[in-house]
Design a protein around this nucleic acid. Structure first.
Length: 911
DNA sequence: GACTCCCGCCAAAGC
DNA sequence: GCTTTGGCGGGAGTC
């Protein structure tokens, strides 16, 4: 008899994720809920035998319905009144409710009474969290009383306080609430959310969660949870090597726990788990994390030795708790990842995009609620020390020098706006505080949206200015950067995604560009990836997805990691090839990114390519499966970029379509891919690349597991997104096609990248067609390795293209083609011929034995056995390795071979 | 049978 | 010593 609030919530799980449901839930509903509760429980008391309580019968007045929602909206206009009325109602009716329940219990048999109780779903933590969140505005004004009394909340929501703790703890981990005192919390709403996510992402990167995910998946497929001593030890080393593995709570400046109780409490794991769970999403390129992996990581960090089944189950339970709350916050969404081994529950990040390098500046621009924007990374140790020794007054972070000027400029502008006597609404700068002018959450929504739009516009201008400045410095033409607006969502109008939307293939930036600008400078640029021939072989060693597809302009997922990863690697020294891939998540600062010198890069590339070639020549002649397996596993372990593990799940929105059309065999596959190219709604499913045996230039197959720079990103088009606000991906693609511009410098923007970087360049968005790479020089030239879907437009012919001289100069300059070879430039941007040609080739060539994955986006690494069997199953025999690799003729040669793809299926479906 | 996750015991920490 | 907080796992509900 503890919980009767479920009657008001008839929404089931399916409704949780539906938009209407969410929008309704945005509105306060406590009063209605209480009223209905009272009604439904009093009724049986009056006529217990004639009108047994049936929660379903109160549907007409259900708060989730539009009609009742109207009432709720009205009541939402005055939270005080609502609260007062609720309290009055509660006090008046509590005794009646109890009496009614008692009476009901007496009159109904056990079964009947059980049936009268709210169902399990109606008591779910997610629904409870919805109710909880509905009580408070997303963006509360500081003028309002935003205190939370747990007792009151628990009473009003008719739940145990224990449940409230579950919610509050998760909210606390996101700094949406903070504990003030015993039984008392402060509600901050989403004001701090973006900042928190940025901090979490940074910490997640520092903690190398990406690597841990890779490691876990690798282990999973290698040994099927074979936790023998050796593996155990190895895994422990893996986790132990992480100096940040201790459980820490990430705090924000000014958001430290006030109560010493929380700080000294050794077991804050729900909070910490929640943060780490979020981190996993933020560092994963396809932001899908399975519960299993998350649980293992959390356990692994915590107590690896206790990695038993019960512990695992417990972690899973907790993760469900957290996930329910995060789902209510619309930060994640439940999906299922289907692979050969079964259907696994997973969650997909649906919250705002978070880009680490611009976080702080963005904060400086958009957030004024919190303490002054803090820049520079917060190390986990710092956070831990902050946690242990809260020092509210002390500034623990410093702003990067490159940001000071920008921030000052922003602050000056803000002051001007705030002090402007004629400012109609004071929402421009003081988002949070000024929102107090609005009487209700309802009123805040448009205001916040307006404010955000204004802020975005302003920010875009700032960014643009800096871009221009930076571009001048590095002789680069900067693309226009205009943030891509989020779909209208009142819940998070000011969240980072509104501003941080790298679109298209993002070229790496240059050292002179302030880190803040970096993601924006990437936006809208298409880069051709010129893969060094010696690198091509790596495609054959292991890649969960071999269908190379152009990256759509609108593709966002993973692009941010491209930037950081590519940039990061450009600064990597010669011998750090392992680290480069192992540490793709380190945040960068401007001083860490020297301006790229193409000459140095090309030399380095060639050098590495030669080394790589030697390396692979050695590997190639290992015929025994064990050796192959070992080297493969090692490569995977060392070099597998973060995105690879979850590539399966990338572009989840396209999964369903892909699942429908994904062919099983090569021919079918090819045809299916070709069909995909024609599909409007999957712009990234376009080109397939083939390379011919004796072609010196191989077009970008971003293979993973490479130690060395394997290619170059060469800007093809400029695809400004500034005009794409509000456009769908498809529309953006079309826009892009009309806005190609050329780069003035053939060298500027040419970024040497390693294969793993290439993969980082949103390889999940690629579909590397598992074709025998055979291209004539013409076909090579006609094959856009990496182009936006917009290139598929019929307008591409008229679009400005990089000149042939630019391309040839670039290619020659970086040593990808001999001096005498010239590559026509125009075809690079012509997609259609490639597709058709490719189709022809794939159908005619006997060497085309590749088998596409059921989905183009495999999430997990295949089992080594499978890899071996499938990758190296060639016409010559299962153990031959005629895969693409440099032959003895030199690094500019690609031996004929066949690429094989493991036939693992991996699908992601949303519930 | 697996998946979800509610529920409440109970211990640590706080007051 | 009482209250608050929250880890934890049994087991019920759902698929």
């Amino acid at each position: 008899m503890q919980q009767a609030g479920g009657e008001m919530g008839t929404g089931d799980k399916e409704n949780h994720s539906s938009e209407p449901y969410r929008s309704i839930l945005k509105t306060p509903l406590k009063q209605a809920a209480t009223s209905h509760l009272v009604l439904t429980e009093i009724q049986p008391a009056c006529h217990p035998l004639t009108t047994p309580p049936k929660p379903k019968e109160v549907l007409p007045a259900d708060p989730w319905t539009p009609t009742s929602n109207l009432k709720i909206l009205i009541s939402a206009a005055s939270p005080e009144i609502r609260s007062r009325e609720q309290r009055r109602e509660l006090s008046n009716n509590t005794s009646e409710v109890l009496q009614a329940k008692h009476c009901l219990q007496e009159h109904l048999s056990g079964d009947e009474y059980e049936k009268s109780q709210p169902s399990r779903k109606e008591k779910s933590l997610g629904l409870l969290c919805h109710k909880f969140l509905a009580r408070y505005p997303d963006y509360p004004s500081t003028a309002e009383n935003n205190y939370i009394c747990l007792d009151e909340v628990a009473e009003e929501l008719n739940v145990e306080r224990r449940r409230i703790y579950d919610i509050v703890n998760v909210l606390e981990s996101l700094h949406m609430v903070s504990r003030l005192a015993k039984n008392r919390y402060a509600w901050h709403g989403r004001h701090n959310l973006s900042k928190t996510l940025q901090a979490l992402k940074r910490v997640g990167e520092e903690n190398k969660y990406t690597q841990q995910i890779q490691m876990i998946k690798k282990r999973e497929y290698e040994h099927e949870f074979d936790f023998d001593g050796e593996r155990h030890e190895e895994m422990a080393r893996s986790f132990g090597s992480n100096e940040h593995s201790e459980m820490c709570f990430v705090e924000l400046p000014g958001m430290e726990f006030r109560a010493a109780s929380v700080n000294s409490r050794k077991d804050k794991s729900l909070r910490v788990m929640s943060q780490k769970f979020v981190m996993l999403f933020l560092v994963s390129t396809p932001q899908i994390v399975s519960l299993e992996v998350a649980a293992k990581i959390l356990i692994g960090e915590d107590q690896l030795e206790d990695l038993d089944k019960s512990k695992f189950k417990t972690k899973i339970r907790r993760l469900y708790d957290i996930a329910n709350v995060l789902s209510s916050l619309e930060l994640i969404k439940k999906v299922h990842v289907t692979e050969e081994r079964g259907r696994k529950p997973a969650f997909k990040w649906t919250g705002p995009e978070v880009l680490p390098d611009i976080q702080d500046t963005k904060l400086a621009i958009t957030s004024t609620t919190c303490p002054p924007p803090i820049t520079e990374s917060i190390t986990s140790k710092e956070q831990c020390s902050k946690n242990l020794f809260p020092s509210r007054g002390k500034q623990n972070f410093t702003r990067h020098p490159s940001l000071i000027k920008l921030v000052k400029s922003i602050e000056n502008d803000r002051r001007k706006i705030q002090s402007a006597p004629t400012s109609p609404v004071k929402i421009s700068a003081g988002t949070d505080q000024n929102l107090s002018a609005f009487p209700s959450k309802m009123a805040q929504v448009p205001a916040i949206a307006k404010h955000q739009l204004e802020g975005q516009s302003k920010n875009a201008k700032e960014m643009k200015m800096n871009l221009s400045r930076s571009a001048l410095e590095c002789n680069l033409s900067s693309p226009e950067v205009v943030p891509k607006p989020e779909p209208p969502r009142a819940a998070a109008p000011s969240q980072p995604s509104a501003l941080v939307q790298p679109l298209g293939v993002c070229p790496p930036s240059h050292g002179s560009v302030p880190p803040v600008i970096l993601p924006h400078t990437h936006s809208g640029l298409s880069y051709a990836i010129y893969l060094h021939p010696s690198q091509a072989h790596t495609v054959t060693t292991y890649s969960p997805s071999f269908m190379l597809q152009p990256l759509p302009c609108a593709n966002v997922t993973g692009i941010k990691s491209i930037n950081s990863q590519v940039l990061n690697k450009t600064t990597t020294e010669e011998g750090d090839n392992q680290i480069a891939t192992d540490d793709p998540t380190k945040s960068l600062t401007a001083k860490e990114r020297p301006t790229i010198k193409s000459e140095t890069s090309s030399q380095r590339c060639l050098k590495r390519s030669q080394a790589l070639q030697e390396n692979h020549l050695i590997k190639r002649y290992r015929s025994d499966e064990e050796s192959l397996d070992t080297s493969l596993g090692e490569s995977i372990k060392n070099e597998r970029p973060p995105s690879s593990s979850s590539q399966v799940n990338n572009e989840t929105d396209n999964f369903q379509e892909e699942r429908q059309s994904k062919p099983e065999t090569l021919d079918e596959n090819t045809a299916g891919c070709h069909d995909q190219c024609k599909r409007e709604d999957t712009p990234e499913d376009e080109d397939k690349i083939k390379t011919k045996q004796d072609i010196p230039v191989a077009f970008a197959i971003p293979a993973h597991e490479t130690f060395f720079p394997s290619g170059y990103l060469i800007p093809l088009t400029q695809c400004p997104h500034g005009n794409q606000a509000g456009f769908s991906d498809k529309e953006k693609a079309g826009i892009c096609s009309l806005q190609h511009t050329t780069y003035s410098s053939p060298i500027a923007g040419v970024i040497p990248v390693t294969a793993s970087e290439l993969k980082a360049v949103n390889i999940p968005a690629f579909h590397i067609t598992p074709l025998n790479i055979m291209l004539s020089p013409t076909s090579i030239a006609a094959g856009p390795v990496l182009s936006n879907s917009c290139l598929n437009s019929s307008n591409t012919g008229s679009a400005p293209n990089p000149s042939s001289s630019v391309l040839n100069f670039t290619l020659q300059h970086v040593g990808l083609i001999p001096a005498g070879v010239r590559v026509p430039a125009n075809p690079v941007l012509q997609h259609v011929p490639v597709s058709s040609q490719q189709e022809n080739v794939s159908q005619s060539s006997e060497n085309v034995n590749l088998q596409e994955e059921k989905l183009c986006v495999p999430k997990d690494p295949p089992q080594p056995q499978t890899v071996t069997e499938n990758f190296f199953r060639t016409p010559g025999g299962p153990n031959t390795v005629p895969s693409l690799s440099a032959n003895s003729d030199g690094p500019d040669r690609i031996s004929q071979g066949t690429l094989y793809i493991p036939q693992r299926k991996l699908e992601v479906s949303e519930d």
